[in-house]
Write a protein that binds this DNA or RNA. Sequence first.
DNA 1: CTCCTTTGTCTTTTT
DNA 2: GACAAAGGAG
Length: 744
Amino acid sequence: MQLNPQQQAAVECTEGPLLIIAGAGSGKTRVLTQRIAYLITEKQVNPWNILAITFTNKAAGEMRDRVDQLADVNGGSVWVSTFHSTCVRILRRFIDRLGYDTNFTIYDTDDQKHVIKDIIKQMNLDTRMYKDRALLSAISSAKNELISPEEYQLSAAGDWNKQTISKVYSAYQRMLKQNNALDFDDLLMKTVELFQSQPDVLDSYQERFRYLMVDEYQDTNTAQFVLVQLLAKKYRNLCVVGDDDQSIYRFRGANIRNILDFEKSFPEAKVIKLEQNYRSTQNILNAANAVIANNRGRKKKTLWSDRDEGELVHFRQFMNAFEEAEYVAGDIRAKVREGAEYSDFAVLYRTNAQSRLFEEKFLMANIPYRLVGGLNFYSRKEIKDLLAYLKTIDNARDDLAVRRIINVPKRGIGAASLNKAADYAEAQGISLYEAMRRADEVPGLARAAAKLKGFTQYIDSLRAMVGILSVEELLNKVIDQTGYVRELEAEDTEESRARIENIDELITKVVTYEENAEQSSLNGFLADVALVADIDMEDEDTNKVLLMTLHSAKGLEFPNVYLTGMEDGIFPSYMTITSDDVMELEEERRLCYVGITRAMNDLVMTSCKTRMIRGETQYNKVSRFVHEIPRELVDLGRDSLPERKKEREIQKNNVWKKAVQDFRKPAAYSQTMFDKPVLTKGSSLMGASGAPDYEVGDTVRHIKFGTGMVLNIVKGAKDYEVTVDFEKYGVKKMFAAFAKLQKI
DNA sequence: CTCCTTTGTCTTTTT
DNA sequence: GACAAAGGAG
């Protein structure tokens, strides 16, 4: 395929700063890869001098492959990776200048939580006032803005709450350093710190990366922005690609101003807009444009396509999430019968929790699927345990890993002995592991001393073999000698078998790593593992339906897309509706825009009238985003309803009528649209119309009166009056809304 | 010291 | 409703 004039211009504009505003589906990945190839083959740039930063490892891998094909060089020498992986590679070489060991451990969210909990305990903070999540997010925001603990403390003057956070931040940072560990945010911040304090290091990387490219630039945060600035300062050959309409990571510190103000930071910058969309039908594109048009503060652009109109955007509303999932499963089945592949479909939702019902239905309908996100492979217990062994072998200063495995398998070492060792470690200023190694010196340890020493001797013996044995051999030794798998085999439950499968999978991953890595090492493997996103593990060739959040779907495309849970309170989320910050709703709308533009040919949006959330039934209105799509682009599906049982049919028709009514309302800005979703306590099974779901003759349960039979239901002015004959309390009359009777 | 039960919290999104 | 953390019994 030929490049269009704008794309061509973007490829050939190699010198100086360049901003490419690339609308969804405008072929930016092609432009980026062509540009790299052009630099190498036409401009004779050494591949070694090019750095391309992408959002996910998967995207990086794909780009590297495509460069390989285009430019007749070893694309491996072009450095293509994510911000975080790039930073790890740099820090592995130079972080000793900042007082860390170069074999530092990378802490994931779970590890961070443990650390922060420890600190909360140590500082005797009121856990009601200071939640670990809140504290971690405050620390994370600070780091994303490159605010050090010291600077944070200065800014906290006069604010008691901020002062406490500041103390926690400092303690947290101290603890990480003691454990020779960095968290995700540290990777960026420490790299910036390194560049700012070590001019020679910065200079060597500036010389090395003379041509910089940053993809998904709209999602960079301040730390990433500064990092890029530093690297680009010398040669100014910086090309950033992004779409302000697809900025969806504000909660993670992404600053949309980075892209909007690019021309301010680089006044000589050229700007190229890519507005032709090669992905979606005109109808889908029009729907997306109509939705995003409601946002203010964006760079004006209009996507167009020379594809034909295509199908209307489909919208369906259901009584509950079960029916929603059933419909999606049925629809996929039907389309597969007509020749579609499973891999043509993606089911997208706002929160991970929504995936469960789809999984269940797909399982029942025999639809192969893959769930992206949710519980990460590497956060499963058995995987974390084994990785903790490897981490301990690799970096004995990581107390967290040591604590995790000290009693896995059971070694009869309890909290008491461990605390004694920890106290001693603190007093001596050594790591927990070191204290255990010297267990004889620790006061108060009687029999436990031998056990602790036994553990460290075992780990030490393994450490002696690092570099001699491969990572795979090392892992197998751990599995074998600890009896980890044997224990699971003995358990012989469905769960334990699944765990064993996961462990086998881990071994496979080790082998794959060792085969692919330029120079494999235990340390390198652990870093790799810490930085993979779930989406990275998706291989293209499996024929499966993909289930994932809207966030995970960024950058992907599918012939058929289901946008599910299109309800006010779900999407846009309750948090953003109630927030008084308009920016939050705008970000949510961008997320919707991302969702719509994933679809190539067919887009189905679904919503439910009722939905169970955390054990509560919610009644939600149709998402305001659905109303923002012009009516003439939407099919409400009256004629295409699948054949069902008679009563279902009637119910469906009512739903459809309601859907039509909703559409006739003046959409987004009518007062009712801003009503909060109705929450009801408990699991009342009231229909959405207010009618009870039970009938005369049904047996029901009342919270106080127990079970009884419904004698009569009379519709009153506001509610239904129900007469029930209870087994123990006799005949009672009550209002349905209050009684919360459950049909049995 | 370990196992089991109870209690509390949570939900937006993730490298 | 689900899962982790804390508390109590053996």
